[in-house]
Amino acid sequence: MVARHDLTTDPGLQEALLQARRGTAFFARKLNELSDEQLDGDSLLPGWSRRHIAAHIGYNARAIARLIEWAATGVETPMYSSPTARNQEIDFGATLSPIALRNLTDHTAVHLSVEWRDLPDNKWSNQVKTAQGRTVPASETVWMRTREVWLHAVDLNNGATVSDIPAPILQRLLTDITGAWKTRGTDTGLIIEIEGTGTRYGDTTNPDAVIVTGPLTTITAWATGRDTITNTPTAPTWI
């Protein structure tokens, strides 16, 4: 019998799934506010139209669903056959008719949600491999999708801002970003400080480090490259 609710009983995972689905709904709302003609307009990502953003979100759902299928069956099913194939897929998707593009984002989101719903507790720890080559438990796919839908809703350039993203997601984003900087060594001489919290990231032992201070939303917008801060250097690349 097909499940009508998430099979996982883990409260943390249930909450994470809720945030991913809320982000998916938020992205869908911002996309549906755009007319067919407006899909041709520029996104906030250089070189990508809104069409590219929509296609990416659609194919990303399909790719993550493949990882859940991998976790469920044990049969290796990579997200993409290659980085080139991924890029070609997005470029193709951007050429679809408006109705086909909208159907792509809707149908793939539903498919992914169902794959998550039907994965039992004992499968969520099964290891899969991301497009970047990281080996992670299947549970990590929920965060992978959450990050994509919330940030790219902003990238649609349709009025959404980083301030629309829930604080727990911003906090985890900032942890991911600063962790990537540290791994690459690009955080040298840089300290990130969140106003009113005392939380600091980066080269905290360097007395000569540049300190970037601001509210969580401002700092995360800057760190993700979605905004600038006056008299502050451009944030290092993180993804």
Results as ranks from 00 to 15, higher is better:
Ser81Leu: 12
Ala63Leu: 06
Ser139Ala: 14
Ala85Leu: 12
Thr135Ala: 12
Arg184Pro: 00
Ala54Gln: 07
Ala54Thr: 04
Thr204Val: 15
Asp203Val: 09
His111Val: 15
His111Ser: 15
Ala138Phe: 10
Pro120Leu: 06
Ala20Met: 14
Leu31Thr: 02
Trp181Gly: 03
Thr141Tyr: 12
Gly47Ile: 04
Gly47Trp: 05
Ala63Val: 04
Ile90Phe: 07
Gly93Trp: 07
Gly198Leu: 03
Pro168Asp: 13
Gly93Leu: 06
Ser81Asp: 11
Leu13Pro: 04
Ser113Leu: 13
Gly196Gln: 13
Leu173Pro: 01
Val142Asn: 02
Ala209Glu: 07
Arg226Tyr: 03
Asp227Asn: 05
Pro236Ile: 11
Arg62His: 10
Glu195Pro: 01
Ser125Val: 08
Ala85Gly: 09
Gly159Leu: 06
Ala72Tyr: 06
Tyr201Thr: 01
Glu37Lys: 02
Thr199Trp: 07
Phe26Pro: 01
Glu69Asn: 12
Arg145Phe: 10
Ser49Lys: 10
Ala16Asp: 11
Gly93Asp: 02
Ala223Lys: 01
Thr230Lys: 12
Thr217Gln: 07
Gln132Lys: 14
Ala63Phe: 02
Phe26Met: 13
Asn122Leu: 10
Gly41Ala: 15
Trp143Gln: 07
Thr175Cys: 03
Lys129Thr: 15
Gln19Ile: 11
Glu148Val: 07
Val149Gln: 13
Gln127Val: 15
Ala109Pro: 01
Ile239Val: 10
Thr224Pro: 00
Arg134Asn: 13
Thr186Cys: 02
Ala16Lys: 15
Val2Thr: 15
Ser49Asp: 08
Gly93Thr: 05
Gly189Ala: 08
Asn60Ser: 10
Arg21Asp: 13
His56Phe: 04
Ala28Trp: 08
Trp143Ile: 03
Leu119Lys: 06
Asp10Ile: 06
Thr234Asp: 08
Glu195Gly: 13
Ala20Cys: 11
Glu69Phe: 03
Ala63Cys: 05
Ile99Lys: 15
Ala235Leu: 06
Trp48Phe: 09
Leu151Ile: 14
Leu156Val: 00
Asn126Ile: 06
Ile90Asn: 02
Thr73Asn: 06
His56Gln: 08
Leu101Ser: 10
Thr197Pro: 02
Ala100Cys: 11
Val110Pro: 02
Glu140Ala: 13
Asp10Thr: 06
Gly189Ser: 04
